[in-house]
Lab assay of single mutants.
Amino acid sequence: DEFHFHWNGRDIRVRGDSEELRRLIEAIKRGELSEEEIERAIEILER
């Protein structure tokens, strides 16, 4: 699976399928994380 979302003017695409990944992306979409937490998560996910 590939998750695709927009954040902070960026087009983010992440491959993978796990419950943890889904929860993280939902939290990002709901605005539950700080900008710094989101940046760090995206860096890890894009590897």
Rank of each mutant, 00 (worst) to 15 (best):
D1L: 05
R10P: 00
N8E: 08
G9D: 13
E35C: 07
D1S: 04
A27K: 15
E35K: 12
K29P: 02
H6M: 02
R10G: 01
I12P: 00
D1I: 05
E36V: 14
E46K: 04
L33M: 11
N8V: 02
L21T: 14
I12E: 00
E35T: 15
G9S: 01
E20N: 09
E46T: 12
I25V: 14
L33K: 07
E43Y: 01
E26T: 11
E32T: 12
E2G: 06
F5T: 00
R40Q: 13
E35F: 15
A41L: 11
R40K: 15
G9L: 00
F5M: 01
E20D: 14
N8A: 05
E36N: 13
D1T: 04
E46I: 13
W7M: 05
L45F: 13
R30K: 15
F3R: 01
V14T: 04
W7I: 08
E26K: 07
H6V: 03
R30E: 08
E37K: 07
E37M: 14
N8C: 07
R13C: 04
R47Y: 03
E37N: 06
L21R: 06
E32M: 12
F3S: 01
F3G: 02
I44N: 13
A27Q: 15
R47V: 13
R40Y: 12
L24M: 09
D1W: 01
E39T: 14
E39L: 13
R23V: 11
H6D: 05
R22I: 15
K29A: 10
E43I: 10
E19Q: 11
E37I: 05
H4W: 05
L21W: 05
I25T: 05
L24D: 00
E19K: 08
R22T: 06
E2P: 02
E20Q: 12
A27D: 10
I38E: 03
K29Q: 10
F3D: 05
E46H: 08
A41Y: 10
W7H: 11
E43L: 04
G9P: 00
G9M: 00
I28D: 01
E39W: 10
R23P: 10
I12W: 04
G16T: 09
E20T: 09
A27V: 08
I12K: 00
A27M: 14
S18R: 07
E2M: 02
R10V: 08
V14R: 00
I28V: 06
E43V: 14
K29L: 08
H4N: 08
I12D: 00
W7Q: 03
L21M: 13
I38S: 03
W7K: 01
S34M: 14
I42W: 04
I42D: 00
E36H: 15
F3M: 03
R40G: 10
R22M: 13
G16W: 03
R23S: 14
A27E: 10
R13M: 13
G16F: 05
L24C: 03
E36F: 13
A41E: 08
R22Q: 10
I42G: 01
D11F: 05
G16R: 05
G31V: 04
R23W: 12
I44K: 14
R40E: 07
R13P: 07
G9I: 00
G31M: 07
I28K: 01
R22C: 04
E32P: 02
E43K: 10
E35N: 15
E19I: 12
R23T: 12
R40S: 09
R10M: 08
E39F: 12
I25Q: 05
L33F: 12
L45R: 01
L24V: 06
I28L: 07
D17Y: 05
I25S: 04
E37R: 06
R30S: 15
L45T: 04
E20H: 09
F5I: 02
E35D: 14
I44L: 14
E20A: 08
D17N: 11
I44Q: 11
R13I: 15
R10Y: 00
E2I: 04
G31T: 03
R40D: 06
L24W: 09
D1N: 09
E26M: 07
E46W: 02
